[in-house]
């Protein structure tokens, strides 16, 4: 199939960017979206042009690196997948596809389609960890954890930190990400030691990084490649209100 790509090109964080049109011919429907970009980039390199910069790593939907905003949706039109798992059969011959970087004040553009998502790392550093005593690891079954809690914690922990929630949200809010990280630890006994401090510090860091507030539109949940539920945001709200009322 033959496609026209409208790709956002921007030299660095401080320069002005603009859209550039590229014709890509002979695209196989079995290619992933990233492989289609590889084809384009090979051509650009051969022609002496600068290739389009984009983030990618595992290319099997688990690392959370790929981050393209395709035709008005993060990770493109399909639900529950990352850009690397989006295949060209989801498009038609002759389509024009607009590809933009994640747009958020807290995610400055590094180059072209690659953005700096270290704001997420700083939210995690603020409280997304548990205390572990030194010494031998204790017996795996020493801490009883209910199956329902384990499942809920696992569902929250499925967040790969790709930032699609921020990209989809009209307020560029990071509440789905932060709430998933708070939830996965709040639900488990290992997370109880820092529970109060965690909610307060992670929310404060989220605000400091310049993410927006939540309007509960549900766009984040709908676009999340890992199906992280809005229930996590409600849990984060409970954790936060409880924390500010009880912390010393």
């Amino acid at each position: 199939m033959n496609l026209t790509l409208k790709v956002w090109r921007q030299k660095n964080a401080n320069s002005e960017g603009n859209f550039q049109d590229y014709k890509v011919a002979g695209v196989s429907e079995d290619m992933s979206f990233l492989e289609m970009f590889d084809v384009l980039n090979e051509r650009l390199i051969n022609e002496g042009d600068s290739p389009v910069a984009f983030d990618h790593d595992c290319r099997e939907g688990i690392c959370g690196m790929c981050s393209m905003y395709i035709n008005g949706e993060p990770h493109g039109p399909n639900k529950g997948v990352t850009t690397c798992q989006l295949h060209m059969r989801s498009f038609k011959d002759g389509d024009t596809i607009t590809v933009e970087p994640w747009r958020a004040q807290a995610f400055p553009i590094v180059k072209d389609l690659a953005v700096n998502r270290s704001a997420f790392d700083r939210i995690i550093s603020a409280g997304g960890y548990v205390s572990v005593n030194t010494g031998n690891a204790q017996d795996a079954n020493a801490l009883p954890i209910g199956k329902d809690h384990a499942d809920e914690a696992f569902a929250a922990a499925a967040c790969i930190g790709c930032g699609a929630c921020v990209a989809a949200c009209k307020n560029a809010s990071a509440m789905l990400f932060t709430s998933a990280k708070i939830s996965q630890l709040a639900l488990l006994p290992q997370g109880q030691a820092e529970r109060t401090m965690r909610a307060e510090k992670m929310v404060a860091q989220m605000d400091t990084e310049g993410f927006g507030a939540c309007t509960n539109t549900g766009a984040c949940e709908a676009e999340c490649p890992k199906g992280i539920s809005l229930e996590n945001i409600a849990r984060m709200n409970r954790e936060y209100y409880g924390a500010v009322l009880s912390s010393k």
Partner: peptide, 13 residues
């Protein structure tokens, strides 16, 4: 909230 995305998307679905 509006200020949190200084550069808007060209296409929003």
């Amino acid at each position: 909230n509006n200020e949190k995305r200084p550069v808007k998307y060209a296409v929003v679905k």
